[in-house]
Design a protein around this nucleic acid. Structure first.
Lengths: 83, 83, 83, 83
DNA sequence: GATGCGCTTTAAATGC
DNA sequence: GCATTTAAAGCGCATC
C-alpha cells in the first residue's frame, strides 16, 4: 500500500509548498495586469478622457440593453419623486 | 497640417473605444487568474490545509525576516498588556 | 518632575488599553447602525422597492445638480460612441 | 376600503422618501463614528503606538483563547515547512 | 457555490 | 509638490 503522506508529491509539506508557490505566482501575474490596466487608464486620462466615466461605461457594457434600460428607467422614476 | 481630432487612431472616438476595450480585455485576464487562484486554494482546502493560514503565510513571506520578527514582537508586547 | 511614562493615564499600558477599548466600543456602535441600515433596506425591499436603485439615488443626492447633470452628459457622450 | 397606494404613509413616494432619508441619516451617524475611530487611532499613533498592531490585537480579542492558540499553532506549523 | 456586505488597501482628488 | 482626505477596487467573510 502507498503511504498517502509520503507518496511523491503527496507528501504534505511539498503539497503545501506547491499550493503557496502557485498562489504567489498567480498573485504576481494579477499584479502585473492590474498595473497594465492602471497605465491604460492613466493614458486615457492624459488624452483628456474622464476615467470615472470610462469605468461606468465598462460596468454598463456588462449588462445587456434591456437591463441597462430598465435600470435607467427605475433610477429616473425614483429620482422624480425627489423633484 | 494634421487635424489632431481626426488623424488616424487619434480620432477621439476610436481612442476611447481602444482604451475601453483594452481595459475590458485586462479585466477578463485578471478575472481568469483570480478564478485560477480560487481553484488552487479550493484544492488546498480539499487536501486538508487551512486556507486562512495559507493566506497568512503568503502575506508574511512578503516581509523580510526582520520585519516579521519585529511585527511578531510588537504584537506579543501589546497582547501581554491585556494578560 | 512628573514621569511621563507612569503618570496616571499616561502609563503606557493603560493608554494602550484605553485606545483599544475605545475603538472596540466604536466598532460596536458602528455595527449596530449598520444593522439598522440593513433592516431599513430590507424593509424597503419587502415594500417592493429596488435596493440597488435606492443606493444609487443616495449616492447621487450627495452631488449637486450641476455635478449630476455633467456626469450624466459625459456618460451619454461616451456611450453614443459605442452605438 | 382603504387605498393601499394613497393611504397615509403607505403612499409609495412618501415611503421611498422615508427609506432614503432614514438610510441617509444612518450613513451620517456611521460616518461620524468612523471619524471618531480614526481620531482615536491617530491619537494612539501620536502617542507612539503602532496602529496596525492595535488592529491585530482588536481582531484577536474577538477570538477566544483556544481559537487564538490554534490559529497560532497552525501558522507556526506551516511556516516551519518553509524553513 | 453564489450573492451580498463590510473591511482593507490602494488610487484619485484637493488643499496647503 | 506633498500630504491629507475622500472615493473605488479588491479581498475575505458570512449567509442563503
Amino acid at each position: 500500500m502507498i503511504d498517502p503522506v509520503k507518496n511523491g508529491n503527496n507528501f504534505a509539506p511539498e503539497r503545501l509548498k506547491s499550493f503557496v508557490e502557485r498562489v504567489e505566482r498567480l498573485n504576481e501575474e494579477i499584479k502585473g495586469l492590474q498595473d497594465d490596466r492602471k497605465e491604460v487608464l492613466a493614458e486615457a486620462k492624459a488624452t483628456g478622457f474622464d476615467v470615472k466615466t470610462i469605468r461606468k461605461v465598462i460596468q454598463r457594457r456588462k449588462m445587456d440593453a434591456n437591463e441597462r434600460a430598465e435600470a435607467d428607467a427605475l433610477l429616473d422614476m425614483y429620482e422624480r419623486i425627489f423633484g
